[in-house]
């Protein structure tokens, strides 16, 4: 399975951080943080995440993967992107 490079992970962090609706300096935001339940972003932001991931990583997320749980944390998104890139590489 292809790995998501650190610089791509950083881009994802930057995109989420620039759209956060919480601005405290002392929040904990790590790879496993659920960005929706933690209140960092609204669920409507998930739609923008879908567009961001498809454009940034040149993938097409199939309909069955368009579920909010696949977009809930940096880890979950990286797992999905990695899986889809592997499938596309073997297609």
């Amino acid at each position: 399975m292809s790995e998501i490079a650190q610089k791509d992970r950083s881009k994802l962090y930057h995109f989420i951080e620039s759209n956060m609706t919480i601005y405290d300096d002392d929040i904990e935001f790590v790879d496993s943080t659920n960005i929706f339940t933690s209140g960092f972003v609204s669920s409507i932001f998930a739609m923008r995440l879908l567009n961001f991931l498809e454009n940034e990583f040149s993938i097409t997320v199939p309909d069955e993967d368009i579920v909010i749980s696949n977009f809930s944390s940096v880890n979950k998104m990286c797992e999905m992107v990695s899986r889809l890139k592997t499938i596309e590489a073997h297609a």
């Binding site: 998930a46 739609m47 879908l50 567009n51 997320v61 368009i66 909010i68």
Partner: peptide, 12 residues
């Protein structure tokens, strides 16, 4: 429609 699939089961 793809975007709304994410947010609402009615569109899935």
């Amino acid at each position: 429609l793809r975007n709304y699939k994410m947010l609402s089961p009615a569109y899935r």
